[in-house]
Amino acid sequence: MSQNDSEARERHWEKTRSLMILVLALWFIFSIVIHWFAKDLNGMSFLGFPVGYYMAVQGSLIIFVILIFFLNWRQDAIDEEFGFAGDNEDDSGPQLGGDN
């Protein structure tokens, strides 16, 4: 492992970690914090739903789905930036050999 390479690895991991922290912070807000205040939020209305209820049946769920797609999008960018995305041919192509 050359000096450059290990430096790239370190910076790659730093960025990956920051992204993880950001994602988990958002996750914490929408899985825990928001529902803690469900009673107060129910005073407001969204699409005809009381907001506290809406977040538990749909809002948080939609945000979770988006959050993972967002995470993947950012992580791909990070991997590409440091040249670690290289040999990841996507969705297709069975891996050959090895099944002994």
Partner: peptide, 20 residues
């Protein structure tokens, strides 16, 4: 409402799976 914690928990867990 109390039961909806299952709905939130069983979907939110996937954020952990993806990130960690």
């Amino acid at each position: 409402h109390g039961y909806l914690a299952f709905v939130v928990g069983w979907t939110g867990g996937y954020v952990l799976v993806a990130a960690l």
